[in-house]
Protein backbone atom coordinates (compact mmCIF):
# COMPACT_ATOMS: atom_id res chain seq x y z
CA UNK A 1 0.00 0.00 0.00
CA UNK A 2 1.63 3.19 -1.17
CA UNK A 3 1.65 6.27 0.96
CA UNK A 4 1.80 7.21 4.59
CA UNK A 5 -0.71 5.28 6.66
CA UNK A 6 -1.79 6.05 10.20
CA UNK A 7 -3.19 3.09 12.06
CA UNK A 8 -5.28 3.58 15.20
CA UNK A 9 -3.47 6.66 16.46
CA UNK A 10 -4.36 7.90 19.91
CA UNK A 11 -3.01 11.11 21.35
CA UNK A 12 -3.39 12.26 24.94
CA UNK A 13 -2.10 15.65 26.03
CA UNK A 14 -2.27 16.75 29.67
CA UNK A 15 -4.88 14.15 30.56
CA UNK A 16 -7.10 15.25 27.68
CA UNK A 17 -7.81 12.80 24.87
CA UNK A 18 -7.29 14.65 21.59
CA UNK A 19 -8.21 11.79 19.29
CA UNK A 20 -8.55 8.03 19.56
CA UNK A 21 -8.18 5.25 17.02
CA UNK A 22 -7.60 7.62 14.13
CA UNK A 23 -6.74 5.79 10.92
CA UNK A 24 -6.22 7.25 7.48
CA UNK A 25 -3.89 6.99 4.51
CA UNK A 26 -2.11 9.79 2.73
CA UNK A 27 -1.39 8.48 -0.75
CA UNK A 28 0.78 10.07 -3.44
CA UNK A 29 -1.40 12.38 -5.52
CA UNK A 30 -3.62 13.27 -2.59
CA UNK A 31 -4.18 16.46 -0.64
CA UNK A 32 -5.63 16.04 2.81
CA UNK A 33 -7.12 19.14 4.38
CA UNK A 34 -7.07 18.66 8.13
CA UNK A 35 -9.79 20.68 9.80
CA UNK A 36 -10.89 21.24 13.36
CA UNK A 37 -11.32 23.90 16.02
CA UNK A 38 -8.45 25.24 18.14
CA UNK A 39 -7.19 22.61 20.52
CA UNK A 40 -8.59 19.70 18.53
CA UNK A 41 -5.12 18.21 18.06
CA UNK A 42 -4.25 19.19 14.49
CA UNK A 43 -0.71 20.22 15.30
CA UNK A 44 -0.26 17.20 17.57
CA UNK A 45 -1.36 14.90 14.75
CA UNK A 46 1.03 16.52 12.28
CA UNK A 47 3.92 16.29 14.72
CA UNK A 48 3.16 12.62 15.27
CA UNK A 49 3.21 12.08 11.51
CA UNK A 50 6.65 13.71 11.25
CA UNK A 51 7.97 11.64 14.14
CA UNK A 52 8.77 14.67 16.30
CA UNK A 53 6.44 13.35 18.97
CA UNK A 54 5.10 9.89 19.64
CA UNK A 55 1.47 8.87 19.84
CA UNK A 56 0.04 7.32 23.00
CA UNK A 57 -0.73 4.25 20.93
CA UNK A 58 -1.04 3.34 17.28
CA UNK A 59 1.48 2.98 14.48
CA UNK A 60 2.57 4.64 11.28
CA UNK A 61 3.41 2.86 8.06
CA UNK A 62 5.25 4.10 4.99
CA UNK A 63 4.42 2.07 1.87
CA UNK A 64 3.31 -0.79 4.08
CA UNK A 65 6.47 -0.88 6.19
CA UNK A 66 6.71 0.37 9.73
CA UNK A 67 7.81 4.00 9.73
CA UNK A 68 10.20 3.42 12.65
CA UNK A 69 12.36 1.28 10.38
CA UNK A 70 12.18 3.56 7.37
CA UNK A 71 12.49 6.89 9.16
CA UNK A 72 15.60 7.96 7.22
CA UNK A 73 13.98 7.20 3.87
CA UNK A 74 10.87 9.07 4.95
CA UNK A 75 12.83 12.13 6.13
CA UNK A 76 14.47 12.41 2.71
CA UNK A 77 11.05 12.61 1.12
CA UNK A 78 9.54 14.94 3.71
CA UNK A 79 9.20 18.67 4.10
CA UNK A 80 7.63 19.79 7.35
CA UNK A 81 6.78 23.43 7.88
CA UNK A 82 5.40 23.95 11.34
CA UNK A 83 4.14 26.82 13.43
CA UNK A 84 7.72 27.69 14.16
CA UNK A 85 9.17 28.48 10.78
CA UNK A 86 12.67 27.11 11.38
CA UNK A 87 14.19 30.31 10.05
CA UNK A 88 16.89 32.07 12.04
CA UNK A 89 16.27 35.81 12.26
CA UNK A 90 19.92 36.80 12.36
CA UNK A 91 20.72 35.03 9.09
CA UNK A 92 19.65 36.27 5.68
CA UNK A 93 17.09 34.46 3.55
CA UNK A 94 19.79 33.06 1.30
CA UNK A 95 21.88 31.83 4.23
CA UNK A 96 18.87 30.23 5.87
CA UNK A 97 18.04 28.36 2.69
CA UNK A 98 21.65 27.41 1.97
CA UNK A 99 22.22 25.92 5.41
CA UNK A 100 18.84 24.23 5.41
CA UNK A 101 19.56 22.59 2.04
CA UNK A 102 22.97 21.48 3.28
CA UNK A 103 21.41 19.90 6.38
CA UNK A 104 18.84 18.09 4.32
CA UNK A 105 21.38 16.86 1.79
CA UNK A 106 19.75 18.82 -1.03
CA UNK A 107 21.95 20.38 -3.69
CA UNK A 108 21.80 24.15 -3.37
CA UNK A 109 22.03 26.19 -6.55
CA UNK A 110 22.20 29.88 -5.73
CA UNK A 111 20.64 31.00 -9.01
CA UNK A 112 17.70 28.68 -8.44
CA UNK A 113 17.24 29.95 -4.91
CA UNK A 114 17.25 33.57 -6.16
CA UNK A 115 14.64 32.58 -8.72
CA UNK A 116 12.42 30.99 -6.08
CA UNK A 117 12.72 33.98 -3.77
CA UNK A 118 11.90 36.27 -6.69
CA UNK A 119 8.81 34.23 -7.49
CA UNK A 120 7.75 34.65 -3.88
CA UNK A 121 8.11 38.43 -4.18
CA UNK A 122 11.31 38.78 -2.17
CA UNK A 123 13.47 40.50 -4.79
CA UNK A 124 16.09 42.68 -3.14
CA UNK A 125 15.47 41.12 0.27
CA UNK A 126 17.61 38.03 -0.23
CA UNK A 127 20.55 39.40 1.76
CA UNK A 128 18.70 41.15 4.57
CA UNK A 129 18.63 39.47 8.01
CA UNK A 130 15.26 37.75 8.13
CA UNK A 131 14.15 39.41 11.37
CA UNK A 132 14.02 42.73 9.49
CA UNK A 133 11.34 41.33 7.17
CA UNK A 134 7.61 41.46 7.82
CA UNK A 135 5.80 38.42 9.22
CA UNK A 136 4.38 37.55 5.81
CA UNK A 137 7.76 37.86 4.16
CA UNK A 138 9.34 35.64 6.80
CA UNK A 139 6.64 33.07 6.14
CA UNK A 140 7.45 33.28 2.42
CA UNK A 141 11.12 32.56 3.16
CA UNK A 142 10.08 29.50 5.14
CA UNK A 143 7.73 28.34 2.38
CA UNK A 144 10.38 28.73 -0.33
CA UNK A 145 11.72 25.37 0.85
CA UNK A 146 8.76 23.78 -0.88
CA UNK A 147 10.31 24.88 -4.16
CA UNK A 148 13.87 23.89 -3.25
CA UNK A 149 13.79 20.34 -1.93
CA UNK A 150 12.33 17.67 -4.20
CA UNK A 151 10.21 15.50 -1.94
CA UNK A 152 6.99 13.54 -1.94
CA UNK A 153 5.44 14.32 1.42
CA UNK A 154 4.60 17.80 2.60
CA UNK A 155 3.32 18.23 6.12
CA UNK A 156 2.19 21.83 6.51
CA UNK A 157 0.88 23.36 9.71
CA UNK A 158 -1.07 26.55 9.01
CA UNK A 159 1.05 27.45 5.98
CA UNK A 160 -1.18 30.42 5.11
CA UNK A 161 -0.62 32.29 8.38
CA UNK A 162 0.40 35.91 7.72
CA UNK A 163 0.31 35.45 3.94
CA UNK A 164 -1.56 37.99 1.78
CA UNK A 165 -4.08 36.88 -0.86
CA UNK A 166 -1.43 36.74 -3.60
CA UNK A 167 0.77 34.61 -1.41
CA UNK A 168 -2.07 32.24 -0.61
CA UNK A 169 -2.93 31.84 -4.27
CA UNK A 170 0.71 31.20 -5.16
CA UNK A 171 1.03 28.53 -2.50
CA UNK A 172 -2.26 26.89 -3.41
CA UNK A 173 -1.21 26.67 -7.04
CA UNK A 174 2.10 25.16 -6.04
CA UNK A 175 0.27 22.63 -3.86
CA UNK A 176 -1.97 21.70 -6.78
CA UNK A 177 1.06 21.15 -9.03
CA UNK A 178 2.70 19.05 -6.37
CA UNK A 179 -0.35 16.83 -6.02
CA UNK A 180 -0.63 16.57 -9.82
CA UNK A 181 2.95 15.28 -9.95
CA UNK A 182 2.22 12.49 -7.45
CA UNK A 183 3.07 14.46 -4.35
CA UNK A 184 1.18 14.01 -1.10
CA UNK A 185 0.20 16.89 1.17
CA UNK A 186 -1.47 17.10 4.52
CA UNK A 187 -2.20 20.64 5.60
CA UNK A 188 -4.18 22.50 8.22
CA UNK A 189 -5.69 25.88 7.65
CA UNK A 190 -8.33 27.97 9.36
CA UNK A 191 -9.49 29.46 6.12
CA UNK A 192 -11.05 27.10 3.59
CA UNK A 193 -8.88 26.05 0.66
CA UNK A 194 -9.95 27.74 -2.57
CA UNK A 195 -10.36 26.12 -5.99
CA UNK A 196 -6.70 26.91 -6.75
CA UNK A 197 -5.67 24.12 -4.42
CA UNK A 198 -7.41 21.51 -6.55
CA UNK A 199 -9.39 18.55 -5.25
CA UNK A 200 -8.82 17.54 -1.65
CA UNK A 201 -9.97 15.09 0.98
CA UNK A 202 -11.19 16.47 4.26
CA UNK A 203 -10.19 15.04 7.61
CA UNK A 204 -12.08 16.57 10.51
CA UNK A 205 -10.95 16.45 14.12
CA UNK A 206 -13.57 17.20 16.75
CA UNK A 207 -12.84 19.10 19.92
CA UNK A 208 -13.30 16.73 22.85
CA UNK A 209 -13.66 17.61 26.46
Amino acid sequence: MAGLAADNLTCIKRDRVLFTNLSFTLSPGELIYLRGPNGAGKTSLLRILTGLSSPESGRLYLNGESLEATRDVFNQQLIYIGHKAGINGALTAMENLRFWCAQHGTAFVASHAYEVLARLGLVGLEDVPVRMLSAGQQRRVALSRLWLKPSTYWILDEPFTALDTDGIELLEQHMQQHVASQGAIITTSHQPLSEHAGPFTELVLEYRL
Binding site: Q76, Y80, G82, K84, A85, I87, N88, H104
Partner: peptide, 17 residues
Protein backbone atom coordinates in the same frame (compact mmCIF):
# COMPACT_ATOMS: atom_id res chain seq x y z
CA UNK B 1 17.77 28.08 22.88
CA UNK B 2 17.38 29.97 19.59
CA UNK B 3 17.17 26.78 17.56
CA UNK B 4 14.44 25.50 19.81
CA UNK B 5 12.31 28.64 19.75
CA UNK B 6 12.58 29.38 16.04
CA UNK B 7 11.95 25.77 15.00
CA UNK B 8 15.40 25.06 13.53
CA UNK B 9 15.72 22.17 15.94
CA UNK B 10 12.64 20.50 14.44
CA UNK B 11 14.19 20.88 11.03
CA UNK B 12 17.48 19.30 12.20
CA UNK B 13 15.57 16.34 13.55
CA UNK B 14 13.78 15.83 10.26
CA UNK B 15 16.90 16.31 8.15
CA UNK B 16 17.79 12.63 8.19
CA UNK B 17 21.16 13.38 9.84
Amino acid sequence: RDDFWDGSLEQYMLSGQ
